[in-house]
Design a protein around this nucleic acid. Sequence first.
RNA 1: GGGUCUGUAGCUCAGCUGGUUAGAGCGCUCGCCUGAUAAGCGGGAGGUCCCUGGUUCGAGUCCAGGCAGGCCCA
Length: 1052
Amino acid sequence: MVRYEELVKDPIVREKQILALWQQQDTFAKSLEQTKGGQHYVFYEGPPTANGKPHFGHLMPRVYKDLFPRYKTMQGYYVPRKGGWDTHGLPVELEVEKEIGVNSKPEIEAYGVERFVKRCKESVWRYKADWEDLIERMGFWIDEKNAYVTYTDDYIESVWWELAQMFDRGLLYQGHKVLPFCPRCGTGLSSHEVAQGYRTVKDPSISVRMLISGDEECSYKQELPGKTALLTWTTTPWTMPANVALAVAPGATYAEVEQNGERLILAKALLGQALEGDYEVVRQFLGKELVGLRYEPPYLLVSDARAYSVHAAEFVNMEEGTGIVHIAPAFGEDDYQLAQEEGLPFFQPVNLSGEFTKEFPLCSGAFVKEADPLLIDDLTKRNLLYRFVLYEHEYPFCWRCDTPLLYYAMDSWYIKTTAVKDQLITNNHQINWYPAHVGSGRLGDFLANLKDWALSRDRYWGTPLNLWICASCGKVIAVASRAQLVELAVEKKLASTVEFHRPYIDAVELVCGECGNKMQRVPNVIDAWFDSGSMHTAQWHYPFENTNEFKDNFPADFICEAMEQTRGWFYTLLATSTIIHGEAPFKNCIATGLGLDESGLKMSKSKGNVVDPWELIDVYGADCLRWYLYSSSAPWKSKRLGEANVKEPLYRFLDTLCNTYNFFALYASIDSFDPMKHQSRQQQLNVLDNWILSRLSSMVNTVTRGLDDYDVVSATEAIESFLEELSNWYVRSSRRRFWKGGMERDKIAAYTTLYRVLISLVRILAPFVPFITEAIYQRLRMVGDPESVHLCSYPKSEDGQIDRDLELAMAVARQVVSLGHRARNRAHIKVRQPLRRILLDTNLPLTEDICCLIEKELNVGKIEQVPTVEAYLDKTLNPNFATLGPRLGVRAKMAAAWLETQSPESLVKAFDARTSIDAQINGEDIEIRKEDVLFETVPPKGFLIAEEGEVHVLLDANLSDELREQGFIREVMHSIQLLRKDAGFAVSDRIILGYETDQRLTDLITKHRETIAAEILAIDLVSKLEQKYEYTGELTIDTSTITFGLSRTDKS
RNA sequence: GGGUCUGUAGCUCAGCUGGUUAGAGCGCUCGCCUGAUAAGCGGGAGGUCCCUGGUUCGAGUCCAGGCAGGCCCA
């Protein structure tokens, strides 16, 4: 006795059971154990930070991060999947600041750096449990037990080793550059961090008069008495006090205008937008004529003689402002550059907290943005302000704390990535990017305009920069290991145990090799992106140990993260690996798109439209969400995560799979089918069996090809259409084979085939939807099979099984059936009403077996294949531009017009004899070939036609009495079956049927009583309703009514 | 301002190297079929394939220029 347990429909119940099973059997570990000797397939985990809850942005890449390792594992590769956690950096510090209620670096210092750092270390794991829950519930298999953690001393030691190499090769240098700077966090931001925080904001934009004070060295001459002003413009009024110069575009035209009795100078192209009200152009000249002109600044704070004159600069644009740019070298990259070139003074009236110093008393102590109104007020009073408007533009904000960034000239350590630019570009070309434009466009563009990597951060919680400087001789060294640290340390004992974090490491002093004096570590920590970007090496604590693990796992075959990691993790991995190992650290990379809300908008906290993954998982299940993400569109396309979209695969795909299994389970249990015992030989399979097995192998080929190409969508499409064919054609057409009594060869063939297909299908699907496939597998597996579907091998195509002709024939058959239904539908003839015959073209590749299927499905007596159905049809014609066009060119339209005038019959006749005819068209001889004409057809009387492409179906709809009688019997049987179902009888229950109706129908039923009885499993048919029945019902045909009574019986 | 992607039915998306009347799924609607099915099948409604030019006998497809949206960068 073999029983196949029914599969519960509720996905949540199902999946929870499976989770328990995996845990109990430790299936993931087993899958690694059994592939240990296999070839490595290397996956790198992009480390998340566990100090925030996981959301869809993490989930979308992770479904692919799970799919490919599972797939490769089933193919026999060894895919260890070492987890990882990103633990350093500003985000962590910010969380802690919030917690302890501080808001600035001095407050942190007051709180105590050690206490602070300790809290950071704890904070990193705040949401670890949330992450673990989600990872487990989604069926993501990743080795978290051996995960790398970026804050460990081992990890840091490897990072130091990398940095020391860079330093020794001269790739680490201290620079003085204008950096985007967060005054609240007190640190500069790297370009990839700045990129995260651009927002459109309205800022005050002001136009300010700079009164001309002299023109000694300038070609521009003031001819009129009185003051003329240069009109300058800025969106950051607070930078005005730091003004030391003005810049103009030398080649552009400027104008002096008169307005309300005053003279203003500005770019001619910007007159319209920069000036208010009427004005008169007094004269025009080129920008270079203004160079050298001296002016009175609004705040005369610098006594340097070089200050306060006009300079030429290429960066001055004519799109906004006045074409006269205010230069504050302390607050702008371009400004700083120009100041360097022109030898201008540098004035910095703002401290690192973004507050004005005493050097500018008017606003002393005020935060820069708060100083704006004070300055505007002051300028207005002094009649220097020409105009004030709110101006909408993109401005960078700190990506974590949302404070507006200031551009600020400061010291910083840089990695000279520009020195390896060519190699970065070469290595980038070695990577297969999905989609390709990430590599060629987004990253390629970034690399083409590469800037050095601003590495240092003036913060506390991070990998400490491993540079020590000698206070007396200025020597700098980069420590490459703990061993070296101990070797050079003043206090060796301390150095041998010290934790590699601030403040502990700050206490370690080294002895200078040059002069013997003490060396101090620089105060900085490094950009946390360098940590995660070093994982290819540091996850193994290479080169200090695990040399083999490193070699076996470099480079990665596959990584996948969200698209915004392009200039984040993707870049930092590539940059560190290129410098340290000389090659790209990964071969294939999928960049995933954004998660959108129901209406297609980006999810964001401020909009309050963030979809919680749990809301979907708890209702529709992990499989459903996974399949939705895999199948809805390419990974890099953004996905709508509204319920309506996400739930679709559940009933369309997963339920169909479930139903198909349950169909098998129902009958295979009744018949106690045992795949070990009931073997079926190849030659006993019927056409449907051979067809579905051929389709199975073809599908495996498509899926494998797709996955090998990282093309997930074509794989899911192939599986979806296969399941459709399995459920709606194979099972549907095979049903009668399963209902027969006994265990004949054909029935065994059907069971064997369906069993084989199901067990292959769940193996194919296992990497995609690990739960439902496991559930089905557990119900199907036999003694000796692996204990989990995830321990099975991935199915390979049995190419010998593929029969392309058969697949084609079956596709045509399905089309014929579909067309037949269409024809019936149009004529309102039910499928239950048998028809005499159907006419098909003989050129259709249909075998007898297949014709038989069509006859059953369409309920027609027989199929007649005729040389061409067209012979039975009336015709109309159309010109075939596909052949006319290439041959005749412009004359194609003439030929087409001529064809319209011809009668179809005469052309058919003409082409019977020849393959081409010569036509006289507008005085030209034009050859018309057979293939130039496309004939359309109209069916004769009493026939129904439907056609599609090359397939024409002609149904003979003339009904004889006999056909009507058969139709009636089918109607009777159908309605009794419905009653059985309504009554809740089991499919195998035997019944006694009573009925009552008029004499004519009674005679008919009596005549066909055996057919009816067999079909409805009736032991007896009684033409009276005397006794009490368990269930009764009625059927009305034409004007007659039949009343039925049904009772179950033990007799057989 | 630069890079890049996208724009096809109410929604989600196909549409290969140009080829007759542009497709699928979901949704709507009418009908059918059902001894696994919350299913399936068929009909119907629903499209200026973002716009404008160009190449071509022929453009959703190729080219150019716009427009709109997204992302990335300045």
